[in-house]
Simulated assay, not measured.
Amino acid sequence: MAEVDLADLDAFAAVARSRSFRGAAGGRSVSPSSLSEAVRRLEARLGVRLLNRTTRSVTPTEAGARLLERLAPALGEVAAALDAVNSFRDSPTGTLRLNVPTIVARTVLPPIACAFLAGHPAITLEVMAEDGFIDVLAAGFDAGVRYDERLEQDMIAVPIGPRIQRYATGASPAYLAVHGAPEHPQDLLAHACIRHRFASGASLPWEFERAGEVVRISPKGPLVASNIDLEIAAAEAGLGIIATFEDALAPGFSRGTLVPVLEAWWPSFSGPFLYYAGRDHLPAPLRAFVAFLRERARER
């Protein structure tokens, strides 16, 4: 039987689970081309095609599906065996791969990540910030950060960051001087508004709440973007009213480049969670991060 490289087997499993070379590469900080080469090398050594590839999809062949079924538990055991060595170290080592929403990477994660890494110098943290809702485990991540409405029911969730957040609305003083301030959410339909569009193509309605009354509107405006920095810059330049996470607008409020709008209507919601699969042997870096978050919560 042909000798095969364990790394090539691992690369195949990652691609087969995520059904994407790009998705598997994102969770491993390697290039899609390197994973493609590893799979080609494995197929050549085994003498059988393992993946069907088109410009739109990657799917396991019958042989590939059979190999993945038998291979996944074995690779898990190898990873657990290697990680067990970490219990003999003074400090855990290894790589922790997280998939998080862009707003979490921007406003929630920086102080947490910096404090964690300062206390765990042998751990490397890899963060992929994106707003698409993917299967983080299939894509090769150890854990993800999501808000409660997006949590899978079979995952373990640990609070991370602020427990209550708000969705805020703001505009520049120059815009309000010319157009006036809205007094009710419905007034926004007569204003220029800056909208956010997710990677999926969705642009969600704006939601407001006060004393049990909920108002949802879909305003119009001069800019629809998928980048919060561009949206904030447009609002500060006086192009319209913006609605997003309060934490993202807080610097503008502090500088005076933005002014709160309809503050009595800002809805609040529960903060994000770190979530991961409940299994007996967590990788040492993930186990250390979970312990760090729980200790941080106790201290607060």
Results as ranks from 00 to 15, higher is better:
residue 2 A to H: 10
residue 5 D to G: 01
residue 8 D to T: 04
residue 14 A to T: 06
residue 15 V to Q: 05
residue 16 A to L: 02
residue 17 R to L: 13
residue 17 R to Q: 11
residue 19 R to G: 06
residue 22 R to M: 12
residue 27 G to N: 03
residue 29 S to M: 10
residue 32 P to W: 05
residue 34 S to N: 12
residue 35 L to T: 02
residue 37 E to V: 11
residue 38 A to W: 01
residue 41 R to E: 13
residue 42 L to E: 06
residue 45 R to T: 00
residue 47 G to D: 11
residue 47 G to M: 05
residue 48 V to G: 12
residue 54 T to D: 08
residue 56 R to I: 02
residue 57 S to K: 00
residue 58 V to E: 02
residue 59 T to S: 15
residue 62 E to F: 06
residue 62 E to W: 03
residue 63 A to W: 08
residue 66 R to Y: 09
residue 70 R to N: 07
residue 70 R to T: 15
residue 71 L to V: 04
residue 71 L to R: 11
residue 72 A to E: 11
residue 73 P to E: 00
residue 76 G to E: 09
residue 77 E to Y: 15
residue 77 E to D: 09
residue 79 A to L: 10
residue 81 A to W: 00
residue 86 N to G: 09
residue 89 R to G: 09
residue 91 S to P: 01
residue 92 P to C: 10
residue 99 N to D: 15
residue 102 T to D: 14
residue 103 I to M: 08
residue 105 A to F: 05
residue 106 R to W: 08
residue 107 T to L: 12
residue 107 T to Y: 04
residue 107 T to G: 07
residue 108 V to P: 00
residue 110 P to G: 13
residue 118 A to H: 10
residue 119 G to L: 11
residue 127 V to S: 13
residue 129 A to Q: 00
residue 131 D to K: 04
residue 132 G to T: 11
residue 133 F to M: 15
residue 135 D to R: 14
residue 141 F to W: 10
residue 144 G to L: 12
residue 147 Y to C: 14
residue 148 D to S: 15
residue 151 L to W: 07
residue 156 I to F: 13
residue 157 A to W: 12
residue 157 A to G: 13
residue 158 V to M: 04
residue 160 I to S: 13
residue 162 P to H: 00
residue 172 S to M: 12
residue 172 S to V: 14
residue 173 P to K: 08
residue 173 P to N: 05
residue 174 A to D: 12
residue 178 V to A: 12
residue 180 G to M: 08
residue 182 P to M: 01
residue 184 H to W: 09
residue 188 L to G: 03
residue 188 L to W: 00
residue 192 A to Y: 09
residue 193 C to Y: 13
residue 195 R to F: 01
residue 197 R to D: 03
residue 200 S to C: 09
residue 202 A to C: 12
residue 202 A to H: 14
residue 203 S to G: 06
residue 203 S to Y: 05
residue 206 W to C: 07
residue 210 R to G: 12
residue 216 R to K: 08
residue 217 I to R: 02
residue 217 I to L: 05
residue 221 G to F: 06
residue 223 L to H: 05
residue 224 V to E: 09
residue 231 E to R: 09
residue 237 A to G: 01
residue 238 G to A: 08
residue 238 G to I: 11
residue 239 L to H: 05
residue 248 A to E: 05
residue 252 G to C: 02
residue 255 R to H: 06
residue 260 P to F: 02
residue 265 W to E: 00
residue 269 F to C: 10
residue 272 P to W: 03
residue 279 R to Q: 13
residue 282 L to C: 11
residue 284 A to Y: 03
residue 291 A to Q: 15
residue 293 L to C: 13
residue 298 R to D: 12
residue 299 E to G: 06
residue 300 R to T: 15
